[in-house]
């Protein structure tokens, strides 16, 4: 009897803390979901909702009205709901090869710019990581410093540098290298300069973060095992900085593809990029449905490679 009694008591005693534990655990779970919910709500409100509005407009019929398209859902006579989806906007994009060419040109410009950023940014990030203590922070500061100056101001100063009677041409004429100013501004060259200059920090910073984490003893181990500096770079440093290369490239490639101000101000009318076309459709042509369709296609073009990348990443983690 005594024995069973004792067992019963100890079970009761044990049950008390167990309930509290379970309660606190479920509260913890709830907290976790609340914390996760906030950023998702934010994304829903400011990314998904506008995306669906734009998507809806892209399927509407243009009209001379305000807003300049017909409503998609209408109450027809006698309480019948009429939904009208217009795919013509997308068909129009396909039929007029201006759009196809512009998309292609945008992708070409942003790809080349990304490659240039990588070629310039990789050695810069490497040098910053390897720099001695006080210089490292100063160099890093230089990379971030341009953000202190408004973007438009920086583009205008680039125009001043590249113009026909700008600093560079004047200097070259003064030095006698050329007689006539060479065309720098309002040409693809100026757009490349502008994009590479603007987006270089977005390449350097993720690369820097990646390289900084890299254990220096890995390079030493490679050298110790007989790898010359070039072999060490190819077999150890490069594969281990691939995540930084991919992150930096996406951060440059995606905004560069949709870039509007740089091709507009530095490229003039001579460089067609999708951002400018979008702007023209919205403002000059006042054709919101076609502009929306252009935006939707741009989104798909940019999101697809991202998703593919995410999938390969996921697979690598599983390995």
């Amino acid at each position: 009897m005594i024995n069973t009694n004792q067992v019963g008591n100890s079970e009761l005693v044990a049950a008390g803390p167990a309930i509290i534990k379970r309660l606190s655990r479920s509260l913890q779970h709830r907290w976790k979901s609340i914390v996760i919910f906030i950023p998702y709500f934010w994304l829903f409100l400011f990314f998904l909702t506008p995306f669906f509005i734009v998507f809806k407009i892209s399927l509407a019929e243009p009209a001379i009205a305000s807003p300049p398209f017909l409503p998609m859902i209408e109450w027809a006579d006698e309480g019948i709901l009429r939904i009208k989806l217009v795919f013509e906007n997308f068909v129009y994009l396909w039929e007029d090869d201006l759009y196809f060419k512009t998309y292609l040109n945008s992708l070409k410009i942003s790809s080349i710019s990304t490659l240039l950023c990588l070629l310039l940014g990789y050695p810069m990030a490497y040098a910053i990581v390897r720099a001695r203590h006080p210089y490292k922070h100063i160099l890093l500061m230089f990379i971030i410093l341009p953000f202190w100056i408004p973007f438009l101001l920086r583009v205008y100063s680039l125009m001043g540098l590249l113009a026909d009677r700008g600093t560079i041409n004047n200097l070259l004429i003064y030095l006698g290298f050329i007689d006539e100013p060479i065309r720098l501004l309002y040409a693809p060259f100026a757009v490349y300069v502008g994009i590479v200059y603007t987006y270089l920090p977005f390449m350097i910073l993720p690369l820097y973060a990646n390289m900084e984490k890299l254990d220096a003893s890995l390079r030493e181990a490679a050298a110790d095992l007989g790898a010359r500096p070039v072999a060490t770079f190819i077999t150890v440093t490069l594969p281990l900085t691939t995540p930084g290369i991919i992150a930096g490239s996406l951060l440059v490639f995606i905004p560069a593809t949709g870039e509007f101000i740089i091709p507009d101000l530095l490229g003039g009318g001579n460089v067609l990029m999708i951002g400018r076309l979008l702007w023209d459709e919205f403002t000059a042509n006042h054709d919101w449905p076609v502009a929306s369709a252009v935006a939707i296609i741009l989104c798909i073009v940019l999101v697809l490679p991202m998703m593919l990348y995410q999938r390969t990443q996921g697979k690598q983690v599983e390995d």
């Binding site: 030493e220 181990a221 050298a223 790898a227």
Partner: peptide, 28 residues
């Protein structure tokens, strides 16, 4: 270092994280 007849075992081991055990050993 890459021309010395000397090899080192590092305190952190410094194993190449992107290579398998086999590839690590074969590296040198």
């Amino acid at each position: 270092p890459y021309e010395r007849p000397v090899n080192m075992m590092f305190q952190s081991y410094a194993l190449f994280p992107h290579m398998s055990v086999e590839q690590n050993v074969a590296y040198g």
